[in-house]
Design a protein around this nucleic acid. Sequence first.
DNA 1: CTTGGCACTCGGGAACACCGAGTGCCAGAC
DNA 2: GTCTGGCACTCGGTGTTCCCGAGTGCCAAG
Lengths: 337, 337
Amino acid sequence: MVDDRKLAVLRAIVEDYVSTNEPVGSKALADRHNLGVSPATIRNDMAVLEEQGYIAQPHTSAGRVPTDKGYRLFVDRLSQVKPLSGAERRAIESFLAGAVDLDDVVMRTVRLLAQLTRQVAVVQYPTMSNSKIRHVELVPLNERRLMFVLITNTGRVEQRVVELQEVIDDNRVAHLRAVLNACLDGCGLASVPDMVADLPERLPAEDRPVAATILSVLLESLVDRHDEKIVFAGTANLAGADFTVGLRDVLEALEEQVVLMRLLGETSDLSALTVRIGSENPYTGLQGTSIVAAGYGSGGKQLARLGVLGPTRMDYPVTMGAVRAVARYVSQILAAS
Amino acid sequence: MVDDRKLAVLRAIVEDYVSTNEPVGSKALADRHNLGVSPATIRNDMAVLEEQGYIAQPHTSAGRVPTDKGYRLFVDRLSQVKPLSGAERRAIESFLAGAVDLDDVVMRTVRLLAQLTRQVAVVQYPTMSNSKIRHVELVPLNERRLMFVLITNTGRVEQRVVELQEVIDDNRVAHLRAVLNACLDGCGLASVPDMVADLPERLPAEDRPVAATILSVLLESLVDRHDEKIVFAGTANLAGADFTVGLRDVLEALEEQVVLMRLLGETSDLSALTVRIGSENPYTGLQGTSIVAAGYGSGGKQLARLGVLGPTRMDYPVTMGAVRAVARYVSQILAAS
DNA sequence: CTTGGCACTCGGGAACACCGAGTGCCAGAC
DNA sequence: GTCTGGCACTCGGTGTTCCCGAGTGCCAAG
């Protein structure tokens, strides 16, 4: 029922509509793409495609526009991810290479991606759950307060101020630090609770209250940040695009960490590109938008996800190429550090 | 030439225009505000005000609209900062009280301010230049790499990975750490370069290259972050307002840290509220917007600035009240931590 | 100096006609 | 059976015209 020529017609419709932002008619199609058939034939095909729900007309007697289902078919079967040009690759490399720390990597990545795709870029901070503790530091601030710093092998640093019930001197701090590091060094974050469960018992009685306080802060900092940080950039690119839905909703969604998180994270495929098109998106207010996302991370393990958000009418091959490329480069950068 | 009644007329025009978003005519003014005079009189006053440049008419035979100069006069002489309601104050307090660290304080502040004013909130991270070093930490990552962490009394933590030319063992690291802390503890950031200038000379020759590397990273981290981090929130509030200028420009400006920085920072008044109205703003693209900003900081010293950005047609008394209140509360929170 | 009256101006909205891109369908050609 | 050219039809968008009413400026009188 949907033979090759009809697929070619659908592809042509998507491509034309993406580039012109106007409903595309049978004549224009016949002109611009050499499909080898007349407009009338194309019309018949279009009627079938519309019947199947791949395209729709905004009004009677207007051209056709791809539906979400049409974009889906296009992405799945009719398009190829478009690799970046050499110049673009070099630009990415040099732009990311200058990063000095994790914050900087994330910041540069999100800006780069926004600029590259001319859409809104979203980058999730590397998830701590998959990383390991590289060092724990206790810094006395004054008699009753410690700064507790946790450093992971992904370069992430968590800090908390610990208020103590009692006065503690530097020697005891040093001792606690040594014990903590002995216990936790190289330990995966997920297994931290188990590792420290019996730690107070192994300490002299006088140190137990302090240790318990510190551990509670440690555990809290792990849980607290389980909802990971997400940053975005490139909202200015939304101003040009006209959404079917108001862009107020889009901006609101972007500032809701939880929504963003689910957008990026719900797709659990590891390194594959995931595309969520229009109404496939569970959130009202983002109905007119699509998300292209990919996982990234150092080594073989995926640490987090990044992607872009744009109007449903986007150039999927190019966007997917950019997202994939950036994810790869960021992974490289992270692995090297 | 500009007597009290004319000022009252100007005030009424600003208030009406802000609330209705429509050019206000003489009749409407006479109706809504009891100025005790007839529309005709008001018309005469309006003609004078227009002559002076305080108001303008979009077209012949339309009502009047305040000019930037008119808003300026209104802010300077015709309005009083409107204090927040008790409920609002309590909301601020409870919202900010839950913050766990500096990042969290800033994040909560910017969101709070955006919600409170229904505009775009902008918050600058506390400037390091005014703060002091509380602790310097060196953490060996492996034989040739150190994590360098700098903790300030404002709760800020800077981190850098240091790549060394030579292998270094834990004892030497401990020694360097002790030396660095002895040298820098409690030292103001501005005076760091002086303090460390002769430090290598005071070390045994073998440690000098390593110390030099670490110091260069230290100094670089100070300089690097001299352009301070700024965050913003509430861009969704821009979607409703219609700018004379496209909001694309506004969004672009918001993502330019440098522009934001200058917007907040150029006004050097310490704790006073500063208001920049429309064209007083040096940046094209932000011509249709106003900025209300205030300094905040712990103790007597101002550390950084925060504010909101919105359409020139904004409710200045309320906005100023909200900005002032938030600045004060944040200062309290910071002072307490 | 203030006020009521009055003629004048224009922007914005409603009504309307027109155009043209695009469609669906059908009969004929390959 | 599939494709093609022809043809009548639809309807959104644009341009035109017209009208209304809010608002103004000016003037003469209080």
